[in-house]
């Protein structure tokens, strides 16, 4: 691999843009293809565009046969990010679990008494209002968002941003009753039913979670299931 290609690859990763390193295994020659190049000329006309698009869609790296050549497609999708509003007990319990799962966690809470580095040593902590934080750090499709404060003043603006984004998971803490009211508020703000349906509520897998750590586990389980939806579907299809 040429140092210039490695530097370009690391730059794409730092910018949270998906790309593929294509290696011709016969001679080791390589090129970097960025996701946005696939829809542009000349890449759009390339016969490799379809297998590259498929690899990016599934996020799976693979060795393929292409026009009589063996190629290795190494997909570099951005690291998955977990953004939570609420520097609360559940997000505290999530910290070590998210780290083990390889999730980059960001906690947003304007309440300075909650959002302290002592309580959140291993996340990116933003002690500000979510609409300000999320304007600077937009949510993308490699991001899961969870609203955990129980306070509409904090959670709602963040949910607005999440529903306007392509993030792959949106969850909000609260009972069915709380969520029904939340749905009303979101509808009043102009969100369509289908958009509001993206919100997982009650949040998390139904494992009867009681403690903050158990709730954190149930939410992270649901996030992993959303991230791996394709694998879940493929396995389900194999069951006779």
């Amino acid at each position: 691999m040429k140092p210039e290609l490695l530097a370009a690859l690391n730059a794409e990763r730092a910018a949270r843009r998906a790309c593929v390193v294509v290696t011709r295994l016969a001679d080791g020659s390589q090129r970097l293809v960025r996701e946005d190049e696939l829809v542009r000329e000349p890449m759009a006309r390339d016969t490799l565009a379809a297998p590259l698009a498929e690899a990016l869609r599934t996020g799976r790296s693979a060795a393929i046969e292409h026009e009589g050549e063996k190629l290795f497609l190494n997909v570099h999708a951005p690291p998955v990010k977990l953004v939570a509003t609420g520097a609360v007990h559940i997000s505290q319990a999530m910290q070590p679990m998210a780290r083990e799962l390889g999730l980059d966690m960001v906690v947003i809470d304007p309440r300075g008494a909650f959002a302290t580095p002592e309580r959140f040593p291993s996340v990116t902590l933003l002690a500000e209002w979510p609409d300000e934080a999320l304007a600077r750090m937009p949510l993308d499709r490699y991001t899961a968002f969870v609203a955990l404060t129980h306070d509409p003043k904090i959670d709602d603006p963040a949910l607005h941003a999440a529903l306007r984004s392509a993030c792959f998971y949106v969850g909000a803490l609260g009972s069915r009753k709380t969520h029904a009211k939340r749905r009303e508020r979101l509808a009043a703000s102009g969100f369509a039913e289908a958009d509001i349906d993206r919100i997982r509520a009650p949040i998390g897998l139904n494992i009867g979670a009681v403690s903050p750590a158990e709730i954190a586990l149930s939410i992270l389980g649901e996030i992993v299931a959303a991230l791996r939806a394709e694998r879940v579907a493929a396995k389900a299809a194999l069951v006779p």
Partner: peptide, 29 residues
Amino acid sequence: MLTTDSDILRAAEAWVREGRGVALATVTE
């Protein structure tokens, strides 16, 4: 994938810049 290889690749870039000889091994199948 859940675990990221970004730190590894960043380290590789830094090692090359320091003038070390560096190899990259990748699971292909």
